[in-house]
Nucleic acid binder design. Structure first.
Lengths: 341, 341
DNA sequence: TTGAAAGCGCTAACAT
DNA sequence: ATGTTAGCGCTTTCAA
């Protein structure tokens, strides 16, 4: 092999190799404009033979169009967000838009950094989890001049559009179901909440509804760190050793709920007779446990699909640029741990 | 508020607002070159006040430097890849490089599309799962002129660098442990493998080692679709109803293994006396089951860290551009389902 | 320490 | 159907 200069190929190289002007080469490669079948063939042949890879940086600069949608979420370890992403991808597939993922680790400062990084690539839209953010993040989004869809949560003010569920309402619905099933000594187990606003709102909706029925949370147990079965076991043991008379445990996610379920079954508790359980999220993965944990589907995939659709709709010329607000209704799945039959 | 033209801000705007030349504004914003403290202040003030967000597209085109590293993986639903990603992020944090994720869904054609999309942004490096790919993908990577690290697997030819474990060896190690524990009627449960080369290699290493000991796999059960507890239950029921005399079940991942464990406990099997179990991956999440499933740690986080480090090292001027090949050693974790005591 | 000029590789807009 | 021209917004290079 000779040693060709290790310079990335440009349109000009394809142009010279095919004997067609750069402009026409560009048209062929983008499939835009009228090009004769003959030239098209020549160009595609040459591009393929050379192994030409277009330079989107130059293309984006020239056209001021970037086919990227920024998707900003707190974490990938959570099982929740991958499902939202798959809804987004599914909807974007077939369009020319591509999702690009940024992770904030639930840290507002990191959100700012990620957002600045993302916006500096001039994406066509932003999909971002949650409604609570720093002033800097807020003004960056407000000033970006592109569609912004805030997802997962509808309890608050959206900058532009939003798609999600009301977590206060989710907490309320769960509380109502628990009360109706006749439970009265209710414990709560969840994350330390300063950063997790959605868990906090569920907790608020939950306690408020209990309060209206004249019931106070009997005990609560918080933890930091990722969700895992073992955490659920430990927390359940802790809360029950403190408050052995609890008859219901509400977990802020399914993973710790499942851990609690394992623990209680080990210890021979009668579920849901002696004690009832509920989690949150509707994690499919966990079907297959000895009992189906009561949970609430957070409509994750649908949220992703609808958010992506909003971005797509905004691209339509002359389309109504009015913000779209969509509140989905979470569905309670009583499973085997909530309804005493 | 007045209605400022809804045009994205440019360096020129900051330049005019601060009375400093564009060039010097650029220097301040990038922190390069000597700028007097006074001008620096003026510029930063103006940029902040206007809410200027740099345009990386223009910057990248002018400098032919892009601070992006493409990370291409099959899936996010797997729990395996998020951990690799977190290793990559952790190592890249503090450098100026940023990971960008692409998903292939285990489809070679999608890998080609994602790869072309990624390379067209001229990233500084590529980290990509697996060693098996289409010829088109292969030649794109070979011709990209940037560091390429293939991860997760070391059984095969790397284009440039690679970091991973030998899945054949992982299968062998597991087989050896099972034989040593005295099991003889061994069943395998896993994914349909045409696309999942790593699972296939584990299976090959596993059966070959059994074969050397004069033992054949007694039965096998394959499935398509994501890993989930319920799948593991169903598959376990299916294989045992066909082959009730099996004394060991080797699962190709921990999730279906855990489902099998649940099923067997339900049915009152004596584990690991009557029947032993092992999975693969070392998924932390599942600690907290009634028994700890035997598994093998695939070094996911370390793979991510080392891969990112290879990319970083290549950036050093005049650094040795020789390909790096790293084979990590998976660790068998016998848990409670492999060793009969 | 600061500024002016020249392009990075492509595409919009306008010829032809 | 194809070609020409003039930038996109920034950074490199060179000059002051």
């Amino acid at each position: 092999m000779s040693t060709p200069p290790k310079r990335p190929l440009t349109l000009r190289d394809v142009s010279e190799a095919s004997g067609v002007s750069e402009m026409t080469v560009s048209r062929v490669l983008r499939g835009k404009g009228d090009v004769s079948e003959a030239t098209r063939k020549k160009v595609q042949e040459a591009a393929r033979a050379l192994g030409y890879v277009p330079n989107r940086i130059a293309g984006a600069l020239a056209s001021s169009h970037v086919n990227l949608v920024s998707v900003i979420i707190p974490s990938l370890g959570n099982m929740v967000f991958p499902e939202v992403l798959s809804g987004i991808s599914a909807t974007l597939d077939g369009s020319d838009l591509q999702p690009v993922i940024g992770i904030t680790d639930y840290q507002p400062e990191k959100e700012e950094k990620v957002l600045l990084e993302m916006l500096s690539w001039r994406p066509s839209g932003v999909i971002i989890a949650g409604l609570e953010r720093s002033e800097a993040s807020h003004s960056m989004l407000a000033a970006a001049g592109i569609p912004v869809v805030e997802i997962m949560d509808t309890d608050g003010e959206a900058i532009d559009s939003c798609v999600g569920i009301s977590h206060r309402r989710a907490g309320r619905m769960t509380a109502e179901a628990i009360l109706e099933a006749g439970y009265r000594k209710i414990g709560f187990l969840g994350t330390k909440m300063p950063q997790d606003h959605r868990a906090r709102k569920r907790f608020e909706g939950f306690t408020r509804t209990l309060g209206k029925a004249g019931i106070e949370i009997a005990d609560r147990e918080f933890y930091a760190g990722g969700s895992a079965l073992m955490k659920g076991r430990e927390m359940t043991e802790a809360i029950l050793s403190r408050s052995p008379d609890l008859d219901f445990l509400y977990y802020s996610n399914d993973m710790i709920g499942a851990g609690g379920l394992m623990y209680l079954l080990d210890k021979g508790y009668d579920i849901p007779g002696q004690i009832g359980l509920a989690g949150f999220n509707g994690v499919e993965l966990l079907g297959g446990l000895p009992r189906r944990l009561a949970t609430m589907d957070a409509c994750r995939r649908e949220i992703g699909e609808k958010a992506a659709q909003i971005i797509l709709d905004r691209k339509v010329e002359g389309a109504d640029p009015a913000p779209v607000h969509i509140e989905l209704t979470p569905k309670l799945q009583p499973g085997d741990t909530l309804l005493r039959t």
